[in-house]
Design a protein around this nucleic acid. Sequence first.
RNA 1: GGCCCCUUCGUCUAGCGGUUAGGACGCUGCCCUCUCAAGGCAGAGAUCACGGGUUCGAAUCCCGUAGGGGCCGCCA
Length: 491
Amino acid sequence: MSEVRVRFAPSPTGHLHIGTARTALLNWLYARKMDGSFIVRVEDTDLSRSTAEFEESILEDLAWMGLNWDEGPDIGGGFGPYRQSERFDIYRKKTDELLETGQAYRCYCAPEELEERRKARLAAGLMPKYEGTCRELTAEQEAAHLAGGKKAALRFRVPDGTITIRDLVRGAIDFSSEVIGDFIILRSDGSPSYHLAVVVDDGEMKVSHVIRGEDHITNTAKHVPLFRALGYPVPEFAHNAMILGPDGGKLSKRHGATSVDEYRQRGYLPEAINNYLALLSWAPEDTKEVFLLHELAAAFKIDRISKSPAIFDIAKLNWLNGQHIRAAGMERITNLCIPYLRDAGLIDEDELSEDDFAHLVQIIEAVRGNLTVLAEIPAYAKIFLSEFEIEPEAREWLAEPGLPEVLGELREALVARGELDFDAGKEVVLGLREHFKALGITGKGLFMPVRVGLTGSAKGPELPYILNILSKEEALARIDAVVEEAKKARQ
RNA sequence: GGCCCCUUCGUCUAGCGGUUAGGACGCUGCCCUCUCAAGGCAGAGAUCACGGGUUCGAAUCCCGUAGGGGCCGCCA
């Protein structure tokens, strides 16, 4: 049983896309499940579009998702370098070999010429593949091209016959070599093409399984003969289906966020993203839906990757995010909420004291059940952190007949006690119920005045939470303000 | 245009020859309850894309058709 080695090979030409992240996740899950290696390899052969910033951003998002790698451009490994731009000499050596053995040949066709012929073929209803113009050039013809100062690109001579690719999720898929034109492996400027770089690297890095999007199925038909020509064992392949937008089309900007960092900024937890992406591409054997990353890895089966494209459903992601927000540790959630509270001006820019933090934990614990995304936290935490005010929707309760008595009694109960905790808050609430039962003040008539008296809002967490969070001083001040307001409202 | 892939509730899916076609999100209702959520329970929602076969029996196997998607670059 040979070691499982899988790789994630992003092109640093943009931020980590949600679909790319999904492919990364699938590879990572398989590596961890099989106790293999997860390799990150940067595919930056397109020097003009690749940037160091994007590479860094992608790695950062990957790390945020918790998809740690065993080998990669930043940490190295036994098969480096892990940036294709640093491997050009390896590709060159390999193409020399192919050229020597006649498995590759020089092509002198100009790009414009090629483009023209491609269009012509398309217009004529033919397959727009390379026609093989330079496939059988004589020594004289080559010499003539060279004499004319033409730079050559290198093409792979695709062997005739049927190419069968084995796909772990779809089974065997046959292609006729007829439909695959000889493709470029080395550009005329000497840089490798994607096809060459991928195959050489997967071969050199001893990649055992290639898990990637189904948009690569036809590429795989090109890669398999190239693996053979280069003398590498052919890895196993698994192609996962695409992620679609709500309209069934390609997932794009107009459907909302498409990059991982956008989701992070909106307050999605990495475990929710991972959980959702996994469920979108693969099905566990039981009916469990909420998974942590390590649970996903344990349950993952490559042959249960789904074959059909899936529509990205933000509602389910939201639900999962809520689930994970509720399940996560309080301190962590609190820390993650702090930036949103800062941006909303609800807490100071300065470092929080330990007491401030403990206070925040109480607040967030009380309201996190309402959250879909962390970014919503200011709306719920506001009643505890901003200057006290009575919300318009709460004002109708000022006219509640029992309000003055209820708040009077509440005030007394608070004064009679020290600082409250949750349980003491509960006792106070129970005490009020007991006290007003005889007076016929119950239910909403009793507790809505309490709620409005303490928070100025008609909605919010359960009363004991509120009593726990508010200092006695603050609670009394609020009660007095509401009683005052109620008096005015009655005049 | 050619080649390739895909097709079960609105959405994600289970199913791998005999099931009342199961689960989840969303939706509706009820319960809990001082409110909003959360949570619990219940319900609506799928002629298994369509048409032919094979079979005693097909969502499941085979062949067509349709629809959707992908690829056919000196992008990756």
